[in-house]
Design a protein around this nucleic acid. Sequence first.
DNA 1: TTGAAAGCGGTACCAC
DNA 2: GTGGTACCGCTTTCAA
Lengths: 339, 339
Amino acid sequence: MRRPTIMDIAKAAGVSKGAVSYALNGRPGVSESTRERILTIANDLGWAPSNPARALAPGGRVGAIGMVVDRPARSLGIEPFFMQLVSGVETELSAQGVDLMLQVAEDVEAELAVYRRWAAERRVDGVVMVDLRVSDPRPEAMGVLPLPAVLLGGPEGAGGLPCLYTDDGVPMREVVHYLAAMGHRRIVRVAGPEEFVHTHSRTEAFRQAAERSGLLQSRTVHADYTGEAGSRTTRRLLAEAEPPTALVYDNDLMALAGLGVAAEMGIEVPSQLSIVAWDDSALCQMVRPSLTAVSRDVVSHGRRVASMLNAVLSGQQVESEETLAGELRPRGSTGPLTV
Amino acid sequence: MRRPTIMDIAKAAGVSKGAVSYALNGRPGVSESTRERILTIANDLGWAPSNPARALAPGGRVGAIGMVVDRPARSLGIEPFFMQLVSGVETELSAQGVDLMLQVAEDVEAELAVYRRWAAERRVDGVVMVDLRVSDPRPEAMGVLPLPAVLLGGPEGAGGLPCLYTDDGVPMREVVHYLAAMGHRRIVRVAGPEEFVHTHSRTEAFRQAAERSGLLQSRTVHADYTGEAGSRTTRRLLAEAEPPTALVYDNDLMALAGLGVAAEMGIEVPSQLSIVAWDDSALCQMVRPSLTAVSRDVVSHGRRVASMLNAVLSGQQVESEETLAGELRPRGSTGPLTV
DNA sequence: TTGAAAGCGGTACCAC
DNA sequence: GTGGTACCGCTTTCAA
């Protein structure tokens, strides 16, 4: 039982292939009555367009977009961020009948290799990029590739790519002022890898806010988003002569690990140590004490960035957009010092 | 700058399209010298096969396989299982130049709709299915669809689909005997949704093991894998007149939530309550006390199931396989009762 | 409005 | 061994 083609429909309706194509795509060139007849027959036959054929036809689209993710494989599985993002991207895409290709890669070079292959083999119509780096080679590389891209991140270093960006300065200041108001003087931020642009801008915001609040002992240290790195870093910090009284993490996972280390070292949260997470996945409300976190709507970011890419693909001029600022959600892991 | 086609190569080499195709695909029909010349030119031109064109040609493959996941969107983001599985599937696929399409769906019907669309539009060559249900409509539905599928799960109810299955009876017995040996009499298992086949077989194994150990007050209750459900269920259980002294969860997330609830209720783990998780993602080692868990190599399951699908797609007769049994990893969340 | 036909970029068959 | 060609299923142009 072969898949029906427009030729089958044409024969059944006694018209030509071209007429069927017009009817099916809702464009002028056939009379209303013919269109209806064709549509009925197509439906009866259970016809659906062959995607490869559509893509091959001049000007045709592949009907898929791609996403490559290149964080350490170990952290990937439990990093809530990505699946939430994928979820949002998906929601937007499936409304348009577009599919999502997902790849994990080792590093930026491998990621670029995937884009090059996708472009060369015509696997996807465009891509969504994440985790912009300082001097990221991708924006420039995408410039010469016939592969439209939008970026979640930026706008600095976006190299002209349309991007959906966030001003983390707002929530970062909120966090610092909140902690400072509760009497914390030694706040250390456990950040993501230094090479990420968003890490960088958060670091700058943190530094400024801390300085303005006169928190001279505050600083940022870097880890790689994994729970292991979060644990190790936290252990080291809490073992210092003058340990921090508050820790601000760049993702939920490291904050969770940090909470574990505090427990393991017999340091009580929040009376001896305050902890702030970032992203606010459901994990934060699952542990005790629950984690104070900066919340952002990752699913909606996914939706928006997908919709931007869609617009680019349909030839529209797309402007970069800013997301709503993240919001601080105070919970049990933060409080005044009681020592 | 148009993408180069085999016609361009043919012209440059002064041969026919057919010859180029043979040369490029490493099959007989061209002399060795011609082949080399063609390969060089193809390389110089930066040629790569057009995937749509390849797929369209008779007998052509799309070069992509699909995966649909239909767990509640909220749990998806933080459920480590899926990204790990995807990771494994990917590793295997990318070695073959095959891409992965990912979709999230509301329920089995929506999932089937995606398969039907993928088949009708020729979007993928085959699919990997997970979360087999009791009286699952999918195996039978896939039978009439021209879309090869392999199943992670089964083998009961697999309906003839090649599957990669696990005997959870082994680790389940290990868990029960371990807890019983430490003096636990009231063990409650907080399972996944009743409709899953793997839930069912674990329930049966749990029941038998408990019975054999004379643990008459042991039972299974169901939740939906989310942290919220894990919390709610745990809270209810621990508030009973004769609360359980050990809880065995069907995934890490619910176990984590359960640990949180115990803390919130002032119940000490493990002296008053033992907790066992299932899957053993990195989360288990991140919390305090660390979670005893049944460990299974989800990434490797992904690799294997992808390789089975690959074999099916290349026309081989594929037998179902069994995975290594999960292993109990005792950690801090389990111990003898000290009351 | 409708029908015929030319691509799109490969694969594979068939003469030579 | 090699070149020519039909075909895959759809879109779109061009005549009728």
